[in-house]
Design a binder for these strands. Sequence first.
DNA 1: GTCTATAACTCGATAGAC
DNA 2: GTCTATCGAGTTATAGAC
Lengths: 210, 210
Amino acid sequence: MDNTEKPTTPELADSTEQRIFDAAHQVFVQKGLDGAKMQEIADHAGINKALLHYYFRTKEKLFEMVAKAVINRAFPAVQQLIEADMPLEQKIERFVDFYIDLISRNPFVPLFIIGEINKHPDQFFEKIIPAAPPRPERFFRQVEEAVAEGRIRPISPRHLLVNVLSMCVFPIVARPMLRIVMGMSSQELNLFLKERKEEVKSFIFAALRP
Amino acid sequence: MDNTEKPTTPELADSTEQRIFDAAHQVFVQKGLDGAKMQEIADHAGINKALLHYYFRTKEKLFEMVAKAVINRAFPAVQQLIEADMPLEQKIERFVDFYIDLISRNPFVPLFIIGEINKHPDQFFEKIIPAAPPRPERFFRQVEEAVAEGRIRPISPRHLLVNVLSMCVFPIVARPMLRIVMGMSSQELNLFLKERKEEVKSFIFAALRP
DNA sequence: GTCTATAACTCGATAGAC
DNA sequence: GTCTATCGAGTTATAGAC
């Protein structure tokens, strides 16, 4: 099963360049810079190794473009929602639904970002870091207001955001580890992950009761 | 700053073999099988590349030993606590404290386990998987009892365990990503992570109120 | 633009002196 | 046990024909 979302720049759709880029995206995200081989990317794209270099010069440059695309795709989606003009409770609900869907469709992406930053911090912080990182201040203010109004119990807005993120992202990313820790089969785990949206939302709202 | 816990088999402490193993542990856990280079391990250990092969034959064998050590160090600690004879509430408190400490001292370990299972599932499931994985059934029963007694509100025991795990592990593992998402400096992030133990515990107990 | 062939290089592994 | 030197496999990158 491959549920990786592939990026598509519309004007170049189905061009050789795009096919290479999509193949590289898939392979790099799953195997990382070191684990990915140019031959494997070429095979996935259905073309010859030499063409990779014709279009992208080096493996590093190709990786750099893929990594940038991944980052610039992952963060703005979150940003939009988190900055939206919407009551706090509704925002949290939508955030959980949206984010669990997003990660489920791209289960390797968070691991890719975190792992590659750990392995190649220089390249990442020099060349790839996003132009416009999310600005969660508005969300933070909404939480503070809700606390002041007594609608929710007192809580640090940052920790709330991190708690929500953690419960959405971690179980999907850590799938293989959960199987071991909880002794679940692959099917059991899939069922379990399907229940997550509702479970996470009710857990959060239970914790926020005044 | 390097806060990686290095394993030490006492009788061999400071032997060349142990120095190599410690170096390999550090490098493999941070960079994974593909990213780690034998030269780098040799440099860390302060000896020559050839000695690595003298003591451990091949890179794969060395990796295998390190991976086994990591697994057999990570899981039993969790298992003990989760199976302990202790009231649910106290168990959760201790679990959060203990686990956040453990991961803080070994921030790369969860990522290492998850990443390597994704990249080399065969090797992992054939050779490295622990003999005795955690058995969370007792914890699950305790949760069910507490629910039945009305001490806590109804909740799926599995999801509770995963929520606790997620909130403990993810923020530390995803440190570099959090810096971007929340726009924090390195110091701010350290402070933030120090507050986590108390925040997580109060969040969980708030969610469990009947 | 795309391919085949091959050069250049990286890295794990071995031989052999000490 | 430890080192230097080197080999050989696997990969990235280039040359050159079409």
